[in-house]
Design a binder for these strands. Sequence first.
DNA 1: GCTTGTTATGCAACGAATTGCATAGCAGGA
DNA 2: TCCTGCTATGCAATTCGTTGCATAACAAGC
Lengths: 181, 181
Amino acid sequence: MALEHAILVSLLEQPGSGYELARRFERSIGRFWTATHQQIYRVLKRMESDGWVDSQEIGQDGRPDKRAYSVTPLGRETLVGWLREPVQPEAVRHELAVKIRGAAFDDEAGRTALITEVVRYRAEHEATLNRYLTGEKRDFPDETELDTGQRLQHVVLRGGIAYERMLLDWLDDVLDTLRQL
Amino acid sequence: MALEHAILVSLLEQPGSGYELARRFERSIGRFWTATHQQIYRVLKRMESDGWVDSQEIGQDGRPDKRAYSVTPLGRETLVGWLREPVQPEAVRHELAVKIRGAAFDDEAGRTALITEVVRYRAEHEATLNRYLTGEKRDFPDETELDTGQRLQHVVLRGGIAYERMLLDWLDDVLDTLRQL
DNA sequence: GCTTGTTATGCAACGAATTGCATAGCAGGA
DNA sequence: TCCTGCTATGCAATTCGTTGCATAACAAGC
């Protein structure tokens, strides 16, 4: 898997500039694929030279021109080809889990500090969950009126919601465990 | 966060060679931090030159010598320092979510292929959950008799179990959604 | 009038990760 | 006997990701 495919999906949902894509990666798409604006600009150029996207310069008065990208038929074929490949196993990187196991080699004070940090981390994810729930109400109020794309976006969002809920429950378990040591 | 810290935790739990670490990353530690043998060898060398670990050559007849690493006091201090830093936000990379949203731009045949792939993916994660549950019974049969390190390992494993259960439920939701399109 | 923030793009440098390949001996099965 | 697979380590090349910085114009608040 590469960033290219996430960009193709995002541009098919809605064409836009590199900057707009970077915003979307911070919000929606970034829930399951993160990227900085540097990566996005670099990859967009390569994709254009490969003929997966094309662009047109849009002059704007008062601010720099922007370059609006949209997916070419070749880009769409490339995406469809990738969609039909098997899903690769994920590369998991869960820093908090490493720290929890590491806490066995720290002292009382270190474990107290970890509890404080877990509480902070939990509050962050509670806020994330609330953002998801607000977005769900706003964007998907009535399931029967959604088109295919929206139904698929909704089921992915439900995955994010389920993940955050699971995480909050687990963090409560972690806090209980740390406090009982 | 860097690979270094995961290696320090693993070597503190049990000293070993680069190869053994690579095995562990495939099994236990790899549940929340993946690494290949190449990364591990490279990082171990840097860690040794920084004085975080030391090693001794162990001659073995019939097969290549192995180099057994263990954590130095400096390495342990380094780990403790890192443990007390705030947890960084995770870089999420969830390929399947991208493919599901991408399915809006594929045809009937593509969505059928995706259903097949999700079923395969689900079976993989069901197997993972069963491995975790078997390991839990084997390694943590009686919570009251566990030491601090084991309790912490157990709560991390419970996180893995909760994640896999959440994922299976969500994949059922995904399958329902795809089949109703 | 000054600072901060937002839109919009990009270069350069560095460090990390991945992929392919190589060595080397032994064990076990077809 | 040959092939595959496992233990055990490592080089080299390439690609990917991150960080710092730079430009440029405007809007809003102090």
